[in-house]
Write a protein that binds this DNA or RNA. Structure first.
Lengths: 341, 341
DNA sequence: CTGAAAGCGCTTACAG
DNA sequence: CTGAAAGCGCTTACAG
């Protein structure tokens, strides 16, 4: 029943040394003699001492925590990335703060405040759709070495980033459909203004051209990464005068909802149309039909992001090296794609 | 390009008042005259002052953050609960720290440390499967008013909790299947040792008895809330000598994987067997067939949990009142259930 | 290797 | 209504 937690002072008194020595024994054991070390250890034990992080943070000007900014807390795509980030941070004694872009905005805070008010030493941003002025503010504040973009990024800004091979993944997807015999392929895009949306769409258009395939204007269907957009996109596809035999969706959530909406209209996948996603979220494999998709190793992405950020925070002057990591993707062929009817 | 952030001192100097006055003007505006207030505001503006939270935290002995403990960061069930929690916290100027039980353990920390080392003012625990000695430690430390269990809870411990009507939801599920004409119903359980597993299983067994239905020992299939367990449970069900015509799964993830595995074995839902879940995660509605399930309002659950915890933290002496909130559930009938073949 | 002392940036009784 | 001063609990040059 420890009601009042003990301080460094208490430990020092019990061990019969100064607080400076206790501090050293704890944070840099080899600076003190073996005998002091054991006396301090014992004193820590008997007093039940726990460091007060608020005090240490104030003194060292470090918060020992990192903010992870998500576009949307409800999207399961991020769960495993968080797992990866958290694993690395915990290992280094860092805590993980989470916020979503919308809520930071709604509560009237500025993103930069997290860094400025000593709440976070750095941030991992998973939202490439940040308002341009927010991005500018971060950049102008000279905080680029405390910020890292993961999955998404901001074109033209000087932030380190880790992302996956979006371009290659998209080519793989289109080629897979082509190899199955599809010649009319549609694309459901991510949200307008999002980098991933552009990269994947551009790669799609590029490869369609490279394969010398037809591409009607209506075959590029605007969406975002949500379930609702997938349903809407399916309705748009159904309404097409000249339907395609295959559809490449910019995310799994989109693809799953797309297939579900088709199903509600009695259209069967892959018998009547092949559908692919991007991401390989957990449920993709359990869907009926199991979803053909492009796999991103989200755990590794999270780990890589956290490692890079920790390095930057620890060695802020190490400019240049390791500013960008691009992780491989892999095509996962399952049953939502088949030769055209 | 603010390189050095300014302090209260700087503001005080510019405004021509003491730091005490600046502090008051900022945190308790009505304590100072209108004219001082405007002078301070201007000084804040020109200096670009942001409060240093580490300093405030040390001084006030409050961290203004809350830890949310998840059993598993990768499970999408929690995403929307986080959204609810985060919304309330952000509104009150609190930050949200996230960790998973496994990682706290792996990194050699004790859960109690978050409270003891001034990292968090309170915690919301979403993991009822905590080791008994961890729970005892939390209870013995007298921190029960800083901790709240949400969704899950610990039997016999004196922690406030918010949860949903698990018992009623289970009865609704069984009754729904009964009303469709099912007389042989199986149950795939949650993880051994988990409260929800017990409550739902007991309610299931109770209602089966109340309806005077048969219940073979093999019809209660052990699982956990994961996808893998759903697949395993399906295999167990398939291997049954005397198969049931309906299955009630303790979670949606379980149910979705169960159906997927059946599908791999050529067994159709609901034509050959009806399957239900519990939770109503986003993807449930998009599954094929759309999943019949018991809906928990996860956003509201998160909001309620956060509100209750904030009240406890703010008024720690308000014992007794509002120690438990039980939220209603609702049956959502979709297409994974039908009359028996 | 160890200690005395300053100081990180706030808030809050205590006086006036 | 406002200010001078103490202090939250650490860490770290600076001496010795």
């Amino acid at each position: 029943m420890t009601l009042k937690t003990s301080t460094l002072q208490d430990v020092a008194r019990v061990a019969g040394v100064s607080t400076a020595t206790v501090s050293r024994a704890l944070s840099n054991p080899k600076m003190v003699t073996e005998s002091t070390r054991t006396r301090v250890s014992k004193a820590v034990e008997t007093t039940g001492y726990r460091i007060n992080r608020a005090a240490r943070n104030l003194r060292t000007q470090r918060s020992h925590s990192v903010l992870v900014l998500l576009p949307d807390l409800a999207n399961p795509f991020f769960s495993e990335i968080l797992e990866g980030i958290s694993r690395i941070l915990a290992h280094q004694g860092y805590s993980m703060l989470i916020a979503s872009t919308g809520q930071v905005h709604d509560s009237g805070e500025r993103l930069l405040d997290y860094l400025d008010d000593a709440r976070a030493d750095g941030m991992i941003i998973l939202d490439g759709g940040l308002d341009r002025d927010v991005v500018d503010m971060l950049e102008n504040a000279g905080k680029t070495r405390r910020i890292l973009f993961a999955c998404e990024w901001v074109e033209g800004a000087d932030f380190p980033t880790v992302r996956c091979e979006n371009h290659q993944g998209t080519l793989d997807a289109v080629n897979h459909l082509y190899d199955l015999g599809h010649r009319k392929i549609a694309h459901v895009t991510g949200p307008e203004g999002n980098v991933l949306m552009h990269v994947r769409k551009d790669a799609f258009v590029e490869q369609i051209a490279a394969l010398d395939l037809e591409l009607n204007p209506g075959w590029v269907i605007p969406g975002d990464f949500s379930i609702a957009a997938g349903c809407r996109a399916a309705q748009a596809w159904i309404g097409l005068e000249d339907r395609t035999t295959a559809v490449f969706c910019a995310s799994d959530q989109l693809a799953l909802a797309f297939i579900a909406e088709l199903s509600r209209h009695g259209i069967k996948v892959p018998e009547e149309v092949s559908v692919m996603g991007f991401d390989d979220i957990d449920i993709a494999e359990q869907f009926i039909p199991p979803l053909t998709t492009v796999r991103q190793d989200r755990m590794r992405l999270g780990e890589t992001a956290a490692n890079m950020l920790m390095t930057q925070i620890t060695y802020p002057d190490n400019r240049g090296a390791g500013n960008i990591a691009i992780l491989p993707v892999s095509l996962v062929v399952r049953e939502s794609t088949a030769p055209p009817p």
